[in-house]
Amino acid sequence: MREKRGFWSRLEDIPREVLYGLLLIAFIIPMIKPIGFPVPVSPETQKWYDTIDKLPAGSVIMIDFGYSGGGEPELGPMAVAVYHHIFKRGGLKAIAMSTSIEGPLLWDKAMAEVNPSQYGAQYGVDYIHIGYIAGTETAMAAVGKDLRATTSTDYKGNPLDQYPIMEGIKDASSFDLLIVFTTGGDQSEGWVRQWVTPYKTPYLCSVLAMMKPTMLPYQKAGQIIALTSGAQAGEMEYLVKVPARGIKSADVMTLTHLLIVVYVIVGNIAYYGKKYSGG
């Protein structure tokens, strides 16, 4: 015969379908009807913004579009906001590459969202993508040593020499800033080893929120100027004044995080209720 379970016991083991169902509702409501919760700008996002803003005219930026399709919903909005900033600021050259095989496809998607022509930016003059370069750290090291020896074409297969943006670009010393968007720890840490340590390239790094604690030692050691997570895209959009997916997701984040806090409280009440009532 099935043993009858007490109230506290049942509360302690709420079926996951219920937990997931409520969470799904908390996801959907703000997506349909944005609440408009305020978005705080953290010091690290501000530092990131200021770093790009204060670059001298003509500065060249290396951007690793190194996230995977799975990480796009989190890192895509951040990458889009940063590109908006680069183009809005003007006078900067953005050379992208990908250490993730899906990078070029996702870069195309991001550019379609940014629409660089609205800022007068032209492909090959103000920005370019030199393709996926296999080998992760080996690729970073190779591009740092000799970019032209590593790849001679852009992601479309056209020769790099035909693009004005590539004039004078040889190796890591040709770059004034490194920006990395990645879902992989091998990439976010690899750039420190292959570019920051040997060439002292200033480094801005954006990773998944759950990767941040592991990257903190690098930031504290001064190897990363600013470390953000994709979850902070709303802050960047606020600073760049281009509200998009990031700000929208700030509402979702507030609601879902608060719901999980409620879950934790309920779980603990149930745990102690069961402990002291005997079931």
Binding site: L23, G69, P73, V264, G267, N268, Y271
Partner: peptide, 23 residues
């Protein structure tokens, strides 16, 4: 791929619900 990755949010929720107890 994005769907499977996003489902992580749900798995984390049930994990947190069980793990964060003041035992």
């Amino acid at each position: 791929s994005a769907t499977v990755y996003s489902s992580l949010g749900f798995y984390m929720t049930s994990g947190i619900y069980r793990a964060l107890r003041a035992r």
